[in-house]
């Protein structure tokens, strides 16, 4: 699962959805892997306005990457700064979460990640 995915996922428990602390989920005991993926500037430019930058910053720090700036780059920044584009590409598209857990900041539920596939199924008392 690419790190990008973490920017779209929150706790599956309905009562957690109303709280902003349920997003992003926090990786725990994370094992990462890196894939070689061709840079797609068009994709990153399309994604930029849809990314929750604050959450991405949290995820990136929690996974041990260098700190991201407080505010997102602009589309012009991405178009003119090749290194910035590459770094963002590397974080979002090339880094994969392979093993570990994703933890909700509200209920503490831990979603196991196995072979890059997290499991968001809930027991009946939580649905």
């Amino acid at each position: 699962m690419k790190v990008l995915t973490l920017n779209f996922l929150t706790c599956a428990v309905k009562s957690c959805k109303s709280s902003s602390d349920s997003f992003p989920l926090h990786p725990k005991d994370a094992e990462l892997a890196s894939d070689d993926v061709e840079v797609n500037p068009q994709l990153l430019i399309n994604l930029l306005p849809r990314l929750d930058w604050k959450a991405l910053k949290t995820t990136s720090t929690e996974l041990g990457f260098p700190q991201l700036p407080d505010s997102p780059p602009t589309i012009e920044d991405l178009q003119s700064d090749e290194k910035l584009l590459k770094d963002l590409h590397s974080l979002l598209m090339e880094t994969n979460l392979m093993e570990g857990k994703l933890v909700c900041g509200v209920c503490g539920h831990e979603y196991a990640v196995r072979e890059g596939i997290p499991n968001f199924l809930l027991p009946s008392h939580l649905v």
């Binding site: 699962m1 690419k2 990008l4 995915t5 779209f8 996922l9 929150t10 706790c11 599956a12 428990v13 309905k14 997003f23 989920l25 894939d35 070689d36 993926v37 061709e38 598209m93 979603y111 890059g116 596939i117 997290p118 499991n119 968001f120 199924l121 809930l122 649905v127």
Partner: peptide, 19 residues
């Protein structure tokens, strides 16, 4: 096509983790 596989996860649409 591996570079275009964003992510897969086990989930139920009625209790989806997607924001």
């Amino acid at each position: 096509l591996l570079g275009r596989l964003g992510g897969t996860f086990t989930a139920d649409l009625t209790n989806s983790p997607i924001r």
